[in-house]
Design a protein around this nucleic acid. Structure first.
Lengths: 340, 340
DNA sequence: CTGAAAGCGCTTACAG
DNA sequence: CTGAAAGCGCTTACAG
């Protein structure tokens, strides 16, 4: 069909080695005179030669392609921009470095070893869980992997791990709420995301910091709601006395804002709501959402950059990088209503 | 490093052909007894065999990978969910059919022929422009390509083309506005997206339909603003007499809503604003955005499905599919203020 | 029913 | 300075 290096060699009357050298560099000892090189190039142009990258990959063992695994890729179109920022930042880095980006479906946990099937040079895994045994297989595998937002991994792994300081973020939130005068605070997780690494770590930080502050918050102050949040009105009717909600991420916080409005609950007058992530999404809610901010783009850029370093044989300086969070105070939090 | 088919053949004492047959199916005439097959499989498991997909691709000419080209990938993180829906829908279809999805950087228009470098079985191209000469090269090339939202392509191409009925959408918008009593309407494009196929087609439809309705709208009723829209207050101060704005997409409409609010212009009381696309984004603006709705997900699903059909040798039924638009009336449009 | 062998298109040590 | 040849790991006609 399309011309190969061999076809060109034949037409030009030289060896395939010379053609390879001229067209693709490489080839240590080969040397070709300038005129001959020009000639080969002209023939290649004439024959509309397109190098077969698959063959080169097979031979060289390098595909110049990085894989990306999103746990719950579906949530990308939910509205909040967390995953979108991630994708955008990773893509920018990779494209600039002349890598391609392949989105993988959620991995069949039976055979993660099939990731080293030659198509990928490395992998970025978002929200990798320490459960599931995938972890061991990945560590054993030959494929360089960088974890992103997989806080529960702990430090007992040789996997590169980039995540934000979730505890620090929750601390900022709690400082803010307690500073406003809130004492009874509810932490909301989402059914189906209960075992998401970040969610778990944030919940634990919630307990820990509440205790530090002498708030006496316990299991009854942590709930799991489904995205459709029929639970909210029921909960509100129970008059539990909570004056503020901390949602584990901005998506959940956003849907709480909506349901609260429909239920006639006024935010922040009746109830303060705080989220986590703080993308531009928080500017579009009504009221605008107070949220802990993690530097998603920066984290994604660091992860992608490091992975490429790893692939190209440059040793990374640290195995683990934790990014500090900040707090963006917007309109969804205020002092609690006077106790009635 | 990792075991190959040949290693297994050696250990099992059979031919590589048999191993290939047992492990990957295929191989027409080969027949292997049940016990021998079991034995081979057990050896493979023992040796932790992982098939090299790159080698298979080189041999078979099929990569099971589809490429996706977004013109202006950067805009994905701007907020509106148009591109996100597209990505999500395409990914779902491909994953289900066991294809991988590779995001490509914007293509070097010098050598689109390098797309057929063996790594892709097909390509989905969003917002492909008829300019640039890429078109011809693609048509000539051996790679199956499906265009998505590339309305300006016209019907003189043998490229598959899936797009919405932009003119129909603009007609719905104009019917709505004129029905409310608007006569002087501004069409807003975005600098840098002026040559985007959809934008061009929508602008032309705007002219055409305005004329049909006897509105006498001309060049002074179409403007290009930059995303930072410093232009809005300047334009508003000129008192042009426009009572409604049609933005070429929801992103532009959204930023107009913001700037208008900052400029103290009340929407829809002082000014009606309409957008195009109508993703969930339109529910998050203040006020909620009236917009023409194109069935983005459905279109993306159709495009991806058809491309896979094409790749796998099933002939598509039509070369071109146009999807009708609808109108989602929300809070950003109302009757014009009484003329003063 | 099974195996030996060619070949997908490239790169790269090696020999001249 | 240049070319012939092996080999990346697989698949598949072909011969036995």
């Amino acid at each position: 069909m399309s011309a190969t290096i061999r076809d060109i060699a034949k037409v030009a009357g030289v060896s395939v080695a010379s053609v390879s050298k001229v067209l693709h560099g490489g080839g240590g000892t080969i040397r070709v005179s300038a005129e001959k090189a020009e000639y080969i190039k002209s023939i290649a142009r004439e024959m509309q030669y397109v190098p077969n990258v698959v063959a080169r990959t097979l031979r060289s063992g390098r595909s110049n392609t990085i894989g990306l695994v999103f746990e719950q890729f579906g949530s990308i179109s939910a509205g909040p921009l967390y995953y979108v920022y991630l994708l955008d930042a990773i893509a920018s880095v990779l494209f600039e470095k002349h890598y391609r980006l392949t989105i993988l479906p959620e991995i069949d946990s039976d055979k993660p070893e099939s990731l080293s099937d030659g198509r990928l040079d490395g992998l970025i895994w978002c929200k990798l869980d320490r459960n599931g045994g995938i972890l061991n297989l990945i560590e054993r595998g030959s494929l360089p992997v960088v974890a992103l937002n997989s806080s529960t991994l702990g430090s007992d792994t040789r996997l590169m791990n980039f995540h934000c300081d979730n505890e620090g973020g929750i601390r900022l939130i709690m400082d803010h709420l307690v500073g406003l005068g809130h004492k009874k605070i509810l932490f909301v997780m989402e059914t189906g995301e209960v075992s998401t690494p970040d969610a778990v770590v944030r919940r634990d930080a919630f307990y820990k910091i509440a205790k530090e502050k002498g708030l006496h918050l316990g299991e009854e102050d942590v709930v799991q709601w489904s995205h459709s949040t029929t639970e909210f009105p029921v909960w509100w009717a129970k008059q539990t006395g909570h004056t503020a909600i901390v949602a584990w991420n901005e998506a959940v916080a956003g849907s709480i804002l909506e349901v609260a409005q429909r239920a006639g609950v006024s935010v922040p007058t009746d109830l303060s709501v705080v989220g986590f992530d703080s993308t531009a999404y928080c500017e579009t809610t009504t009221p605008r959402l107070t949220a802990a901010c993690q530097p998603i783009r920066e984290m994604a850029i660091a992860a992608a950059t490091t992975l490429v370093d790893l692939v190209e044989g440059r040793a990374p300086t640290h195995l683990r990088r934790v990014f500090p969070c900040t707090l963006d105070v917007r309109g969804s939090t205020s002092e609690p209503r006077k106790q009635s």
